[in-house]
């Protein structure tokens, strides 16, 4: 495109002193960051919806119904916790959806923000602080998490695996798991210096997959040898799964364990936020 240097451009000029109220950004900066992240997310909405609907549908057809039929026919229709295998599986699948949805919105966007496009630095060149960026990114990640869990719930409803009444509590439990895990992953991602160098692939293979496999997703955690059960104990997946099963269909769980499940997920969120705040502030001020 050629440019006409002689062309006059008229620009009105009030001046930042009168135009910009710093207190507005100081109070609402995290909302502006979330607004940007959601705008970015909307660019990918077909992929988000296709993944949100397609993934559970395939899972429910193959694992839920396929393996479910085998389990139910071998052990009886209400062999595990007195419910069908599909119902037993549902809270675990929702926890996975929550964790996955929130994680997707904190890992790659953090690389984009610090390394690829350096957009976090452009945010920080305004009144927005590192802490506000963390809070905004997490807010947007939770919006994606809630949406993804809800889409999964719609599929589960279609397959008759859950009831409408259970939708809010399962949404809350799964989103809390997403919150705890994503907060930790956000801080972790912010520590990656130049490129991800396959770190996220390693996390996927050696953290998320084992967490999914060994957290009582497909069978009660107590069925596993004790030396493998610890993977579940430290995993938000297990805490959300157990909590979801207790809240949804009344799987018997000691009250102290229910408190522990909530506490672990919320503690992960607190640790993750605090760690991420420190890392962001440090990295942006370099």
């Amino acid at each position: 495109m050629s440019i006409d240097i002689s062309k006059e451009s008229k620009m009105t000029w009030t001046g930042a002193a009168r135009l910009v109220d710093p207190q507005l950004s100081i109070r609402r900066g995290f909302l502006y960051v979330a607004e940007n992240r959601i705008k970015n997310m909307l660019k990918w909405w077909p992929a988000i919806v296709a993944f949100g609907i397609g993934n559970p549908t395939l899972y429910l057809l193959s694992i839920g119904i396929g393996i479910g039929s085998l389990v139910d026919s071998s052990l009886g229709p209400n062999a595990i916790d007195g419910v069908s295998y599909l119902t037993f599986l549902a809270p675990a699948l929702l926890a996975t959806a929550g964790i996955q949805g929130a994680s997707d919105e904190v890992t790659w966007p953090t690389m984009e923000g610090f390394v690829w496009d350096r957009t976090f630095f452009s945010m920080n060149s305004t009144a927005i602080t590192g802490k506000q960026i963390v809070n905004g990114v997490m807010l947007a990640a939770m919006a994606r998490c809630v949406l993804q869990v809800f889409m999964y719930e719609l599929c589960l409803l279609a397959f008759g695996a859950i009831t409408w009444e259970s939708v809010p509590i399962l949404l809350l439990v799964s989103s809390t798991a997403g919150l705890g895990f994503a907060a930790i992953m956000l801080a972790f991602s912010a520590n990656i210096k130049d490129d991800d160098d396959g770190v996220f692939a390693l996390v996927g293979r050696f953290v998320i997959t084992p967490m999914f496999m060994f957290s009582g997703t497909f069978y009660p955690i107590t069925s596993m040898p004790i030396y493998l059960q610890w993977i579940g104990w430290i995993s938000p997946q297990w805490h959300a799964t157990n909590l979801g099963r207790a809240m949804f269909y009344g799987m018997p769980v000691e009250p102290w364990l229910l408190i522990l499940h909530w506490s672990v997920m919320l503690a992960m969120a607190v640790v993750g936020f605090s760690w991420a705040h420190r890392v962001f502030e440090r990295r942006l001020s370099k």
Partner: peptide
Amino acid sequence: RAHLGVVPQQDNLD
């Protein structure tokens, strides 16, 4: 920062 404009050395457009 609310009253500054910044053009960094490296473009950081979205």
